[in-house]
Structure formats: C-alpha cells, structure tokens
Design a protein around this nucleic acid. Structure first.
Lengths: 348, 348
DNA sequence: TTGAAAGCGCTAACAA
DNA sequence: TTGTTAGCGCTTTCAA
C-alpha cells in the first residue's frame, strides 16, 4: 500500500499538500498541483489507511450498532425477521453516508462499552436497552447515542444532559388497537403471548390490559401466555400454550414469528385458526404473509425506523442537537386471515 | 481515555513495561511490577486504542465479510433467512475468537476492495462470488481469503497460489436427490424455479437436469421458471409462473422463501399444494416450517458452514495453510407436507 | 501557495 | 528486568 509520504516524495512536494488535495481542501492549492496530485493518486490507486487517519483525526467513521441479547434463545438474534430487516436498512444508510458499521452483540454492557471505546466509535445505535443500560453507556461514552425501542424513565432521561434520543413506536396504542380489533370481532377471552414482561412487551401488555378494561373484560394472570423461548423449551412451551388456547377466543402474540409458530402448535392440538381461535402477530414482517393462514398483525414501518435512527445519529455526530428526545412512529392493524369473528360463543 | 504513556508516567516506569504486562508478555517482567500495573490498569479502566494498536502492529483484528449484491431485489439481502442465519453464526464465531466483523455489502468489487484495504482487514470471507471476482480480490489483497458457496474453474483456482479455500455444498447432488425424490413420487412434469443461472443455482440446475435425464424425462427450456426478483416485478412474476404451474406435477424452487411465496401464488390461481402441484424448497430455513403446507426441502447445515468458514479463515490468518481448497457439505432431503405422490396423472 | 514538524497511541527492536 | 526510541500513516498548526 502506497502512503502519502511516498506520494509526496515521488511528486516532490510535501505530505501536507498531498493530504490537502485528497481532502479537497483545494482553496490553498494551485490548480496545477491539484491536477498533478489527482492524476498520480489515480495512477497508483491510493487508498488511505483508515487506522492512521482515525488515530490522527480522532474520529473513526464507525457507527457502533449495539444489540444486547438475552441468554440462550431458540433463534439466533440476527435471524429474527424484525432484527434482520432493521439491520438491513441500517447497514444501507450507514454505508450511504460514508460510515462503517460495527456490530456489537453481547449480553454484557460492560463488554460492549469496552469495544466501543477501543474503536473510538463516532456514534452509537442502541437497541432495546432496559433500565439504565443506555445511561451507563452514555456516562462512559459521552458521544452521540440514539436508542431504538427503548423505554426509560423521565428521571433517567434527565441525566442524559439533553443528548438522549429514542426512536420508538406507539407500542401501547398499537396493541390497544389490536385488542380492540379483536373485541370488536366479538372476542372475549383474549390471551397475551410474550417471552418477557419488560420494555416494549411491557407497554404492549399495558395496551392489551387497557383495551380489555374498556371492553369490560376481566383479566387474570393466566391470560398472560408466557413463553419460555430457550432453544430446548420453546416447542414444549408452545404446545403447552396451545393446550390452554382451547379456552380462548383469541391470542395476541408479540411477534409474527411467535404468532406463526403458535398457529402451528394450535394445529397440532386440533385447533383451527381462525375458526376455533383467532391469532394476531406484531411487526408485519414476512412471516405474516408466508404463514397460513396469513397473519392479521400490527404493522410498523421498519424502514422508516431504521432511516430515522441513522439520520438522527448522523446529525448529532455532525453537532446538530436533536430537536426532541422522542420520535415515535405509529403502527396500525393489518387484517389478514388469522382472525375472524367469534363463532364459539355464538354456537356454544 | 487514559493512555499507556500516561499510565507509565503515573507508575514511574516505561511504556514498554506497561505494554508488556497488558499483552501478558510477563516472562520479562517481575511479579511485583506485573501486579502493580494490573492493579492500576483496573483502577483506571484502561481501554486500548485499537486504531493505534492496529497502526503500530499492522494488524486490525478485523474480519471483512463481503457480500456482493445483485441490483435491486425484492428483499433486503440481510433479510434472506439463509443470509441472516449465516451471518448470525459467523458474527458469533468471529466474536468468540476475539476478532471484529466488518460487513461490506456492495454491487461493486472495486468498491469493496478499497474499503477492505483501507481498514487493513486481517482476513476476508467472500460470499457467492462469481467468475473471477474472488481472484480479483485476492490479487489486490494477498491476505487470507475464504469463499463461501463459490464455484470457479480450476484454471482460476490455480492462480491463487494455494491460498484459495471454498466452503461449499453439494448443490448439484442435493438437487439431484430432490428431483429424484419427486420422480420417485411419480412426478413427470417438473419445473425448476430460480432467479438466475449462475453459480450455485447453475449447479442446482445441473442436478435437476441430470435427475430428469436419468428418469427419462425430457427437458424444455419452458420448464425453467425464471423469476424476476426485482421489487416491482416479483409478485407479477410469481403470478405468471403459478399460471404456468397448472401444467406441471411439481416445482422445485431454489430457496425456501421462493417456495413459500410460490405456494401463495398457486393458491391465488386455485391450485392446491400438494394435491395439484408439489412444491419443494431449498435450505431448510425457518420459512419451511412456518409455511403451510410445511415445506419439503433440501436441508443444509448453515451453522456448520459458518463455523467451518471462520475456523478455516482464522487458521489461515494464524499462518496455518489450508489442507484442502474445497470443503463441501452434504445436504439431504427433508420430507414435509408440500409434496405428495402424483394424482393428476392417475386420474387424468 | 507550499512545507516542516509535532503528535495521535501503540509496538518492538535495541540498549542498558 | 526495565527503559529509550524510532516508527506505523495521517492530520494539522505554524512558519516560510
């Protein structure tokens, strides 16, 4: 790899001049010199050493994308349609902006922090942080941080000194509408299926509770279909829940994949979807159209979410302070074939 | 961020000593010094600047993962279940080995080459290169390169000076077995669905042709269901192909996603799967169990493929020459519900 | 308009 | 066993 120094030597000029034309700081360089340098650059196929550049300029052009995984899951996190969809658009946007993406996946915030610091990452995109995770990151990091789908308390946000931005979704409202959609169909016994009770899923649960309440339906904790999503247990877990589903009119699932797998489990126990039980998903990722029946689900605009996240982060990196600390997208129900109006009650 | 220099100053010793204990080169340092340094390192939470480290040591600990995309596709490449599954295990393995992954997605090899060189990437994982793509990369790069699912001619391989390794699959044999499975069920008119005629899919096509030949079935180019996979055209393309499917007993698809979408298109034109037409997929990714009917497909071990690729690359980076230039995994047919024995011919 | 030189943080050859 | 020092390739201040 040829270096600037060498080029300068060949051209009989200083490294400063070469560096200047490389960076288009041509105000201070004669037209003639510019051409001479440009031509030679082309000829030798100069490629800058980014490590050196980063070291000298103290900026890396790396955007760190941080995903905190839970322990063992049935599926590699990157295989989740929502995650891979998100990552796809994020990667694209980062690349378009001339930055590089580095992926940090870990269960351990401290570990992530280390790596992010070691690379001198210019900015961070944080997915699904809980509690004070994001704050811990920010405190040690003090560079632009954008969170995605993160719920933290006002108190914690205040400690961010105005440099917290979350790109989120109206999870509660979206789920409320989903459940309302089901009650409007005449369903009464409605279960809520998720593998956790935190963050995003907690808000969805609240939306679910509120819709039930407004419909005058009582909730019991048995209606929370808690999935054990470990690799070894997920099948058994679905089977168990499908067994319980006989007593329900509808089951709302916190992701399309879960909805799809749940439908499979229902089939196994002889329950027909939607005739015997309606099933809803969330996200409107491609499992919702591959599944049969196709999934009635809550659509969210993944592309927009990803683009907004990177756009916001990039602006912050360029020193533009964020206008608001929350950018919240609106989801909406998409009707497909996994739901229908209530039959059981009518005939039973 | 505290530096080694500063630490050395505080501790009243040289940077070499500090650097040595950081890197565990403790043979040359007294026990006492080691402890003193370690303790202080902990205390101040020292994090090395990787840019500096890379620059000085001339190695980046970055593994470049290169994916050459085709033009516009209906789906972001990272959303493809096969790709995201692969990336998931690769990321994991890279991380476990203490390396970093940098993703380079582009249509343009030259562009990729630039970035890879700029970062001084330690090794490269190349996906689905065609023709002399991989060779071009190697020629400009001359560091360890492992290809995945790459078919190139012997001539080209020879130019690699023994440093070419491909992690592949018996695509031809796998497809041969898939088609044989279909002919054994009594199917005669069998179509082959793909969006291209190169690389992997070309070999699969050859397996298909051979199986047909052995079964004494004639092939006509109309039996190649060529999918236009652009965003705007894919639906229309599937509809058109589903229309053609009426005259067929079975359709072999080059991916599970395609199989799944094709089944959807068949339903639209009133064709039942598998009663009217059998459909097969490839890869055995999760659409094959989410779809209804579940997909009969050709299973390949993605996890093993990914692990082998990284393992091989890491060894090469450590200077161990590869034993063989081809590591080829064996796929096998998995029976599910999207295929059945031939009815149409029996009754018609 | 151009150049010299210091320094980014780290490694490693060499000296002590 | 420890320290000095010369780079790695680039940016940038300051001087010419």
């Amino acid at each position: 790899m040829i270096t600037i120094k060498e080029i300068a030597r060949q051209l009989n000029m200083s490294t400063t001049t070469v560096s200047n034309v490389i960076h288009g700081k041509t105000g201070e360089v004669s037209k003639e010199t510019i051409d001479r340098v440009r031509e030679y650059l082309d000829e030798v196929g100069y490629v800058p050493n980014l490590n050196a550049q980063n070291l000298a300029a103290n900026q890396s052009h790396i955007i760190g994308v941080v995903i905190k995984t839970k322990e063992e899951r049935y599926m590699n996190i990157l295989s989740e349609p929502f995650v891979s969809g998100m990552l796809g658009v994020i990667e694209q946007e980062i690349r378009k902006a001339g930055y590089y993406m580095m992926l940090y996946i870990s269960e351990d915030i401290a570990d992530i922090l280390n790596k992010v610091a070691a690379w001198n990452t210019d900015g961070l995109l944080l997915f699904w942080m809980l509690d004070d995770d994001a704050l811990r990151v920010y405190k040690h990091y003090r560079k632009p941080v954008v969170c995605v789908d993160t719920y933290i308390s006002r108190e914690v946000i205040d400690q961010f000194e105005n440099s917290f931005v979350n790109i989120g979704l109206e999870d509660e409202q979206g789920t409320y509408e989903a459940i309302k959609y089901l009650t409007d169909l005449g369903h009464k016994k409605i279960a809520f299926l998720s593998d956790n009770r935190e963050g995003v899923d907690l808000r969805r649960f609240r939306g679910y509770r509120q819709a039930l309440e407004e419909a005058g339906i009582e909730y019991s904790d048995k209606d929370f279909f808690e999935l054990r999503s470990g690799k070894d247990e997920i099948d058994a877990s679905f089977d168990r829940l499908a067994g319980k589903a006989k007593k329900y009119d509808a089951v709302f699932c916190c992701s399309d994949v879960y909805a799809s797998l749940f439908i499979g489990a229902c089939e196994k126990v002889g329950l027909k979807v939607p005739e015997d039980v309606s099933v809803m998903g969330f996200d409107d990722t491609f499992p919702s159209i591959l599944s049969r029946p196709t999934l009635t689900t809550v659509h969210q605009d993944i592309e927009k979410k990803g683009k907004l996240a990177i756009e916001t982060l990039l602006k912050m990196i360029q020193g533009v302070p964020p206008k608001s600390d929350q950018i919240i997208l609106k989801p909406y129900v998409i009707e497909r074939d996994s739901t229908s109006s209530r039959h059981k009650g009518v005939t039973g």
